[in-house]
Amino acid sequence: MTIGIVVFPGSNCDRDVYWATEGCLGMPSRFLWHESTDLSDLEAIVLPGGFSYGDYLRCGAIARFAPVLSSLIEFVNGGGKVLGICNGFQILTELGILPGALTRNNNLHFICDTVPLIVSSKRTEWFKSFEFGERILLPIAHGEGRFQCDPDVLKRLQDDDSIAIRYNENPNGSIFDVAGITNKKGNVLGMMPHPERACDNKIGGVDGKLILQSLLSK
């Protein structure tokens, strides 16, 4: 089975994801143009980071209408694994597959850094290689990563154990230090940090590799 990496006009982490999944992890991967709708050979789909459709209107707002994403909803309902990284996370919230929204960082800066995160749920397969409460290091690179939702939604996320990772030192003002969440079923993960940029010790760590590994079941 194969991992599909969606390419929107303006995606810029699609090749990094391919490098990580196919190159570092040896998992069969292919690019998936935003106009394609046939996902039948895929076990998992990654929505990579970047600036899809220039991020016009709001991040992810226009990407939401791409043909590939109508098929993605069926794919998710069928239990397929979907990982949205950065802009991919923004798209998943715009689509309503994940709750909340990603808004402008509270300090208005585009933050490019490597930050400590805490694994805050072991409910899903995504973080099965880590311990609960484990501190991991991943790069972040975003201007609009402040996770925002109303108190009821936050409570539901907590009750469902859907808050997957949290910032150790909140860089952007996200509510409850949220850096990544899963859907209730657990097959969808959206996260602002970039696991694909942490797959080789030479470039600053391999914590991302352990997350990407869970895209394909063994």
Partner: peptide, 14 residues
Amino acid sequence: SLRPSVLDPAGEAT
């Protein structure tokens, strides 16, 4: 417009 409960950092900076 942003909902009143949502922080508007660009508005604050301005």
